[in-house]
Design a protein around this nucleic acid. Structure first.
Lengths: 284, 284
DNA sequence: GAATTTTTAGAATAAAAATTCCAAAATTGC
DNA sequence: GCAATTTTGGAATTTTTATTCTAAAAATTC
């Protein structure tokens, strides 16, 4: 049809060459242009990259909503990638479409077939452990205790978070969420074996996190706070935890271990819920 | 409207019940009616039974051609199965392979607007977010990339872990697991704005973790390692992450957010699996 | 084998989706 | 701070796709 006269091949590689002919080419071209893309088109690229598998079964409008852009932005995006329009892009994905692993359990089984100890088998185990923990938490959550914990911590001047070793990831995530929600909080991390117990002021409160085997320092801080009359909220694994005796509100989280390591899924779910509820209660 | 007098319940079960609610129900109903179907409808049934997985990405016309019948026959077929039309039938198959995901964000919006800020409602949502993240991970995990990541990191002298802000909990948990498994590892925490890039030695490797909005320091360290020829493993949220360009192995984790906060369930599952696999590979 | 019922094909219509286009807004370069 | 350029949002348009309807063809019944 219409032939551009004497084109420089190198210059044209990206722009005038036909549309990507495979999903790999698609990804490559996407990565290429990604960096110099204006805001809306960037949103399209991100959302589409994250949901490549949905392109085949989505409409322009649906993708646009997902990427939080107007439909015309999606159209422009398709054209920038070299397609004549959305339909042509979609055709690529429809032809390649095969509804992957239909359900969760089949796929898990499949991962495990890599052999015991293989990375994917391990992943499958940890996924399963996490899911079971979450399910157990959904069933066992103590609404009353949660409510009490929220009101205790929402009423404090500063929330002191303490959690070490395996509980430290949870503690640090809590610190992050509190900061984002402008809740005054302090993370006691035990760096350099200092303990910052002198930072505890009247009207503060302590949120202590520990699981068996319970960390000495965490217990000490909780005890200390208790002795000074500060309220303590415990996030722990069972009602027989030594933390229980110092606590005004006790949140227990049933976590399933695989090997020596906890999944932490349930603990983190509980922690974020707690933090967000507190942030909201303080009028964040 | 017109009521058949004294109907035998068994006869009506198929006709009057709503449309099939799942792929299994669909297949069951199809098998039921298959035998007493006139010629053209029979052709539809056969072709559709043989190509169930293409329904999601086909048009009426395409299916009709495939079954060698006029489009109207396909329409009648859909209605006989209990659907209002083809579109309703197609919706079933489009949604079957991504349960919940499309309208999850809508649900969160509703929850916020409905003012249901009760702590336990929040907890329920975070549990749900975590569960979905884990399931999505199970479905999307890239075994090859995981394998590559393990061998890269298992071969390193020291593993440098970097992850800040919301990624920091994951990084710190990794550091904990590595320590327990006697894998030499160093956690770069950015305390005091120091960056420890001089700690990177030949034969080391970097495990970088970051999610949008990507943290500058993490990217810098990854870039630096790359420049020195050290292998980099990326644990990030999407293929369009800026980390991708510096990485030798890329692990993407689909995580469902609640507003600004990630559930982290899937990320942690992936992280522990990775760490344990590395520990095992090194003969821990 | 005529009458009745069921099934069918395809044209006509309605609905939904993709695509274009342009004025307004934002950004960039000077 | 102004002019030129790029980017954007949304309404208008076109194209595609689903759906309905009806007259004709088969099939069935008596």
């Amino acid at each position: 049809m219409d032939q551009t006269p004497t084109p420089h091949p190198a210059d044209l590689a990206d722009d005038l060459a036909g549309p990507p002919a495979s999903v790999e080419e698609f990804r490559a071209r996407l990565a290429d242009i990604l960096d110099d893309l204006p805001r809306r088109l960037r949103q399209c690229a991100d959302h589409i990259a994250a949901n490549t598998d949905r392109i085949a079964v989505s409409t322009v409008a649906e993708l646009a909503t997902g990427a939080d852009v107007p439909p015309s932005a999606v159209m422009r995006f398709c054209q920038i990638l070299g397609f004549s329009g959305f339909s042509e892009m979609q055709r690529l994905f429809r032809e390649a479409y095969s509804p992957g692993w239909p359900d969760y359990s089949t796929r898990l089984k499949n991962l495990k077939e890599g052999g015991t100890g293989s990375p994917s088998a391990l992943l499958a185990e940890f996924i399963e452990a996490g899911r079971q923990s979450l399910e157990a938490l959904a069933k066992s959550a103590d609404e009353l205790a949660l409510h009490r914990a929220v009101s205790v911590l929402a009423g404090a001047d500063t929330v002191h978070i303490v959690g070490l070793r395996r509980a430290f990831p949870v503690a640090s995530y809590l610190a992050y969420v509190f900061e984002k929600m402008s809740v005054p909080a302090m993370l006691h991390d035990g760096v350099g074996k200092l303990d910052h117990r002198f930072a505890l002021r009247p009207n503060d409160a302590v949120l202590a996190i520990t699981f068996a085997p319970y960390s000495e320092e965490t217990l000490t801080l909780a005890q200390d706070a208790r002795a000074r009359g500060l309220p303590v909220v415990a996030l722990t694994d069972r009602m027989t935890s030594p933390l229980v005796r110092y606590a005004d509100a006790i949140l227990t989280v049933p976590e399933v271990d695989f090997g020596a390591f906890r999944s932490l899924s349930a603990t983190i779910a509980m922690a974020i819920a707690l933090a967000v509820a507190i942030g909201t209660a303080r009028g964040g």
